[in-house]
């Protein structure tokens, strides 16, 4: 992929600054709404820039997918009831993670056919695929819990820790395998394992603790977007993803503290019998 023109790179820098100002604004009640609008302006700027500067084929189908996505997202956000906002945020976070995983898979397909990527880039690709998938399925399970489409009680079963451990080990194993032998098969296997880990991560979390886990998965998606920025040679994605990853991690900790919980007891409490029951 050829580097974008200088003016486009400068606009990406402006968009990155908008995201910093957005997070800054959102931290104070007086400036929160303006901060959010600055973030949206930065995002719109970056989207227009990539469309006109990217030397892209298939602009018509891309435009249609874009308009459909924007319409669905905005419509969902306008129509949702106040009480259902947390699960909608979880859903938005999940589709973002899914998008990051797909982008990395498509890029892996490119790498597998043309080659010429560094080991670091392959590691970042594997990371994006697995963390994006974790975020996708994890967020969907949190959505199902909050929407009460499944039990809000912590779910565990005999052999859960062993299965969880095996899933994590195989994620690392396939990640290393992908870095050594970049093939689509390894990428898809990694996506499937990541999807499994995401479900296992959220199952033992009680209903009252779910917002903390949404925040954690939000940070995960941020990190996978950051890694995809490295894979795609795009500093804006790296900066935006890292901002969200770092801010989201701290926010997760702050939320857990505000609720008088530790992150460890939130995620694994049910295994020790100490979790809140939704």
């Amino acid at each position: 992929m050829s580097a974008p023109p200088i003016w486009a790179q400068l606009v990406y820098l402006v968009a990155a600054v908008c995201f910093v100002l957005a997070l800054k604004g959102l931290s104070s009640p007086r400036t929160a709404r303006r901060g959010n609008l600055i973030g949206a302006a930065g995002a719109a700027l970056a989207t227009v820039t990539v469309l006109v500067s990217g030397d892209l084929d298939h602009l018509l189908p891309i435009g249609i997918a874009l308009v459909v996505g924007v319409a669905l997202g905005a419509l969902g956000a306008y129509r949702v009831q106040m009480t259902q906002m947390p699960q909608l945020v979880a859903l938005f976070n999940g589709v973002g993670g899914g998008a990051a995983a797909i982008v990395a898979l498509v890029e892996l397909n490119e790498i597998a056919t043309t080659g010429g990527s560094s080991t670091f880039q392959l590691i970042a690709t594997a990371f994006t695929i697995v963390i994006g998938s974790v975020s996708f399925t994890g967020s969907i399970v949190t959505f199902l819990k909050l929407q009460e489409l499944m039990t809000t009680r912590p779910v565990t079963f005999a052999g859960y820790p062993i299965l969880y451990g095996l899933a994590l080990l195989s994620a690392i194993g396939f990640g290393v395998f992908l870095a050594l032998f970049p093939t689509m098969v390894a990428g898809i296997a990694l996506a499937v394992i990541g999807a499994g880990v995401g479900v296992l991560l959220v199952l033992p979390v009680g209903g009252a603790d779910v917002p903390i886990v949404i925040s954690l998965l939000n940070a995960f998606t941020g990190l996978s977007v950051a890694a995809s920025g490295y894979v795609l040679d795009n500093p804006l994605l790296l900066v935006a993803g890292t901002l969200v990853g770092a801010a989201g991690t701290l926010l997760t900790k702050l939320m857990a503290t505000a609720m008088g919980r530790s992150l460890g007891s939130t995620l694994f409490g049910a295994l020790k019998g100490g979790s809140t029951l939704g």
Binding site: F19, A22, L23, L26, S27, S28, P29, A32, N36, G39, A40, A43, A46, T47, V50, L51, G54, D55, L56, D57, H58, L59, P61, I62, A65, L66, G69, M85, P86, V89, F92, N93, G96, A99, A100, I102, V103, V106, E110, P211, I214, S215, N218, T221, G222, V225, S228, G229, L232, N234, L236, L237, A240, G241, L243, V244, A247, L251, M255, A258
Partner: peptide, 25 residues
């Protein structure tokens, strides 16, 4: 502001849209 901030940060990582448009193009 914990929840709105989480939601705003969540929106920001939607900028993966730029990456998705690039690979689609």
């Amino acid at each position: 502001l914990h929840t709105p901030l989480m939601s705003g940060a969540n929106a920001i990582h939607g900028i993966i849209l730029v990456g998705a448009i690039l690979v689609a193009g």
